[in-house]
């Protein structure tokens, strides 16, 4: 620090510099505890569904409700689509997102259905890069417990999960690969991909 800088200027600049240094975190009103309790509610809802004894179709509907309530489906859908989404119209993206939501609910709902009689439990939460990671353990009948991690971020004052990592397997990465392959099969047409997604999962 050059000595000719007035003391007052330094004193007034300092808080600004400190604020800037902590800005990415300061901007996040969400805390680790909030992320943790959010996922606590998600897993409580999932536990209730998998032990509800409802028929499969009803369970899959319930899973879709969980997605709508707790996940940033728009982000997940766009991220799965990747660069191809840039040239699409808003209406095409809206229709695609709707179809994608049903597809994800069916696909992952069927897998969660295998958890019947089991339970998911929140064990830990921590900040990770610009968001939070909540660690849960799935305890299923007759299986070694395995780890499911939820990535949670805040958007528009609402905390939502946007990725799910099951023993290292990343949902966004898997869906990027899958939707990418479906898009190729649909001749790179997003409306055709949307139709295919309605049948898939």
């Amino acid at each position: 620090m050059p000595s000719n800088v007035p003391r007052r200027a330094v004193l007034t600049l300092m808080p600004g510099a400190v604020a800037l240094a902590v800005w990415p975190y300061g901007a996040m009103a969400m805390t680790v505890d909030e992320a943790r309790s959010k996922i606590g509610r998600v897993v409580a809802d999932i536990n209730a569904i998998i032990n509800s004894g409802k028929p499969e179709a009803a369970m899959l509907k319930d899973f879709e409700q969980i997605l709508v309530r707790y996940a940033d489906v728009n982000y997940i859908a766009k991220s799965a689509l990747g660069p191809a989404g840039r040239s699409a119209s808003a209406a095409e993206i809206a229709a695609y997102t709707q179809a994608f939501q049903g597809y994800i609910a069916r696909k992952y709902g069927r897998r969660f259905r295998e958890f019947i009689g089991g339970e998911i439990e929140v064990v830990d939460a921590r900040p990770l890069k610009s968001f939070y990671e909540v660690q849960t353990i799935a305890k299923l009948k007759g299986e070694a417990p395995f780890e499911v991690r939820w990535h949670v971020f805040e958007k528009g004052g609402k905390s939502q999960f946007f990725n799910l990592i099951i023993e290292g397997v990343n949902m966004l990465a898997a869906e990027r690969t899958e939707v990418g392959a479906m898009l190729d099969q649909a001749g790179r047409s997003i409306p055709k991909l949307t139709e295919a997604l309605k049948q898939a999962g």
Binding site: D72, Y75, K78, S79, L81, G82, P83, G85, R86, K129, S130, F131, H151, F153, K155, F162, N163, N170, L172, A173
Partner: peptide, 8 residues
């Protein structure tokens, strides 16, 4: 994946 980046 960074959720604050452009998803596309």
């Amino acid at each position: 994946f960074d959720p604050y980046e452009d998803p596309y």
